[in-house]
Every structure is written in C-alpha cells, then in structure tokens.
Amino acid sequence: MFDVPWDFTAIPRFFPGFYVAALLTLQITFFGILVGLALGLVTGLMRLSNNKLLNMPAKGYIWIIRGTPLLLQLMIIYYGLIDLVSIDRMPAAIIGLGVHNGAYIAEIFRGAIQSVERGQREAALSLGMTPAQAMRRVVLPQAFKRSVPALGNQFIIALKDSSLASAIAVRELLLRARQMGSATLMMLEMLMIVGIYYLLMTTVLTLLVGRVEKRLQVSDYRD
C-alpha cells in the first residue's frame, strides 16, 4: 500500500467552513459587475460619440485597463493610492473589479449597438424621436439583447477574477484556502474545496445566462 499524503475526507468536512468566503466572492463579483455594467454603458456610449471630448477619454480608459493586469490595478487602488485615499479592501476590490470589467463591457455594448441596423435609428428619428430617445427606446433594447451571450461570458470571467482580491487581503475563497491550507497542512484539499465552489458558481451562472438567452428568444422574433 502506498501512503497517500492527502486526506480527501477532509474535503466534505471542511467544505461548509468556506461558506462565508464564498459569500464574499459572490459579493465582490456581484457589485463589481454592477459597477462594470454602469461604467460599461456610459463608456460604450461615449466611445460611439462623434465628440472627441467624449470618445477620447473613453478610448484612453479602455486602452489602459485592457492593457494592464487586473492584479496590478487592484494593487494600485489598494496600496498605491494609500497616500491619497485609504480605501477599505472590500470597496477596493469592488471598484477594481468594476473598473476592470467596465472596459470590457464597454466594448461589448459598443459592438452590440453598432450591430443594430442603421434603419432602426432612422425609423425612430423619422417618427420625431430625439436622438437620445431613439437610442433608449429603439437601439439599446435590441443591443442589450444581442450582448447577453458576451455579457454572460464576461460575468463568468469576473467571478473567477475576483480571486485576485486575495492579493489585497480580502478573505474570499482563494485567500481562505491558503490560510486554511497553512493551518491544517492540507493545502491541496483546501484548494480543491475552493475549486468545487468556483465550479458550482460558474455552472449556476452559465445556466442562468442560458435561461435569459432562451427567454429573450421566445419572447419575440428573430428578424
């Protein structure tokens, strides 16, 4: 008999003990996505504007965020800005994840808005709508619908990326695993527990996104 150095029975035993950390992961992800959606919508619209004062800052923001690692962005917000403002680790994680996702979501929205046929906006304008009304009533609803698959994908990435908040001392799943691993000397077992949590959450999220997609499809048309 080999002496296996691992005790996998520890997995079910310690599993419930990660519950609070999982909630933290969900919180960072949820609020990070909310911030990201708001920033993404505003930035996406600015990016499409013909006004340089609007589209240049949007381009700059997207360029910087997509060109640097999220880990670095989190560190800058939490450690780097400490002389300027001291932000708590949770808000820092949420802002960091939100600002990061905002850049990606902006590009998703921009693409979806551009994919709506020009005639839709023109029909709205010809009815006497203002450009803002045409955007809000006609273009955006269609664009949102088209962006659901890409958004769902981005949400799953955000959920997994929230693990980087461990680097700024947020006691979410990954940090909890490392701490528990050191304490129990069962590192692999603790990391596997976290892996199972992530799989469960991403699976549920994938199913949810799939349901939303389906619902949007049957509710009307395919034209």
Partner: peptide, 9 residues
C-alpha cells in the same frame, strides 16, 4: 422605408 425598419422588439 424599402426595408420597413419596424421595431422588432
């Protein structure tokens, strides 16, 4: 319009 441009939603 030639292509109707009805609002599909």
């Amino acid at each position: 319009f030639q292509h109707f441009n009805l609002f599909p939603h």
